[in-house]
């Protein structure tokens, strides 16, 4: 495990920084998108950190039923709108 992923706070900050940077164009991300933040780590370790962030209420799942994506809690399109303002 890389030092970045091993340090819970630093890992969470890195995820949030990356998500905020992308926030203008996108609000929901696949699990694989997070691999870019931790290029030296195994997918299984990365998903543990990301899922922990959901448990801690920092991120939230969005699921179509067949695929699951992640976003900052409360951010982006919620169910009640479909891209409209």
């Amino acid at each position: 495990m890389s030092d970045l992923l091993d340090n819970k706070e630093a890992a969470q900050d890195a995820v949030l920084e990356w998500l905020n940077k992308k926030a203008k164009t996108k609000s929901k991300f696949y699990i694989k998108d997070f691999y870019k933040i931790f290029p030296d780590d195994k997918p299984r370790m990365i998903k543990k950190v990301v899922n922990k962030m959901v448990e801690d209420g920092i991120l939230e799942y969005w699921s179509s039923g067949s695929t699951t994506m992640y976003g900052i809690k409360g951010g982006g399109i919620q169910h009640s709108s479909e891209g409209e303002n």
């Binding site: 799942y61 699921s63 699951t68 169910h79």
Partner: peptide, 18 residues
Amino acid sequence: WKHGGIVGVFGYGGGVIG
């Protein structure tokens, strides 16, 4: 129908389909 959403139960990322 609109399918999908953020609904679920605490700690689980599956089992509920909005």
